[in-house]
């Protein structure tokens, strides 16, 4: 049995080896693919906080992923066209600087998660799953029929947004940017779950009544976790827009919520690196199966079902039997 700590080291070395291999074999696409895994992993790390550690099964995290993505594309779009973004209460211009876009994406997706969380957290269980889905669907239909930013056609920004001194269009550079965000988000999660606040929200998952009885306002605890979770997923959405230089309503689709959830569960819930491993497994399956058969979704479905039936603790659990919290 390998310890989780050891396993995590393996993950880190892989994360560094893959891009180097991509460079050596002149296959820059593999770097792009690895970047996609990392970004989806970040989205999963965000969801894992709410879902894995606090027991809030959100089926609507596509909303935050999409909001982060749209904020990024819209700001960049206005910068390209040199138009004003808002003129009230003061003039705000678009920007194609990631250093400006990131805080905006994080702020606005936190704002959305605050509103959605305030309303949804009144419910629990299946009702919570479904009300979060409902909010994501609202945004999805809104984005399709809102003509200003492309509607169903989506919004192209042609070029990635920029960082000082770096060429973000270079696959390796963008990979490293995403990797540092992954590191940051995992670090934040780690610090959070080991803080007193973290003890509180993990206790809420186990027994909310008991936490209430010691005088902690569980509603506030859950809301705060939900907001942090949404903010991290929103950031991932921002990076995803830059990866594709494009955003469209499909990021707000319910299947996006489903897939982020799949990453988390597949990797092993309430494990720091679980979402990353889950995303990697999913993307690798999609790519290899897709190369052999048109009906790859059939086999993907079959493998996922087998995984759930026979590897209950997720992929990381196969290597490490630590009881999930």
């Amino acid at each position: 049995m390998i310890s989780e700590h050891f396993f995590n080291k393996w993950i880190w070395s892989l994360l560094l080896i893959i891009p180097i291999c991509g460079l050596i074999f002149d296959e820059p696409y593999y770097i792009t693919l690895a970047t996609k895994v990392i970004i989806l992993g970040i989205a999963g790390v965000g969801l894992n906080l709410a879902l894995g550690y606090c027991g809030l099964i959100s089926f609507g995290h596509a909303a935050f992923f999409g909001v982060g993505g749209y904020v990024t594309a819209i700001m960049s779009y206005h910068a390209i066209n040199e138009e004003i973004l808002f003129n009230w209460p003061f003039d705000i211009f678009g920007s194609s600087e990631m250093l400006i876009i990131w805080p905006f994406a994080i702020f606005i997706s936190s704002f959305f998660s605050l509103i959605i969380g305030l309303l949804s957290l009144r419910t629990s269980g299946v009702y919570f799953i479904m009300i979060t889905l409902a909010f994501a669907q609202m945004l999805y239909f809104f984005s399709i029929s809102w003509p200003n930013y492309g509607g169903e056609d989506g919004l192209s920004i042609y070029m990635r947004n920029s960082l000082p001194m770096l060429n973000t269009m270079n696959p390796l550079t963008f990979y490293l940017i995403s990797l540092s965000w992954l590191l940051t988000s995992i670090y934040i999660s780690y610090k959070l779950i080991n803080s007193p606040f973290g003890m509180a929200f993990q206790a809420v998952k186990q027994n909310e009544e008991r936490v209430k009885s010691v005088g902690i306002e569980t509603f506030k605890v859950k809301l705060l976790v939900f907001v942090v979770s949404g903010a991290i997923t929103g950031l991932a959405g921002s990076l995803y827009t830059d990866l594709n230089r494009f955003v469209s309503p499909s990021v707000l689709d319910w299947q996006t919520s489903g897939e982020i959830m799949v990453f988390v569960i597949l990797g092993g819930i309430a494990r720091l690196y679980g979402p990353l491993v889950g995303a990697a497994f999913f993307i690798i399956l999609e790519q290899t199966l897709g190369a052999y058969t048109e009906n790859w979704q059939f086999w993907l479905g079959l493998i996922l079902i087998l995984e759930i039936l026979y590897a209950r603790t997720g992929i990381m659990g196969l290597f490490n039997k630590k009881k999930t919290i």
């Binding site: 099964i57 299946v126 569960i265 009906n295 979704q297 059939f298 479905g301 209950r312």
Partner: peptide, 26 residues
């Protein structure tokens, strides 16, 4: 899946959608 938590059920039946849709198309 009956004894599993909602999460496993959601994931398994999500996978079942992929399998059945693609199977019917096949």
């Amino acid at each position: 899946l009956y004894r599993r938590d909602h999460l496993d059920q959601v994931l398994a039946t999500f996978a079942l959608i992929l399998l059945l849709s693609e199977g019917v198309r096949w």
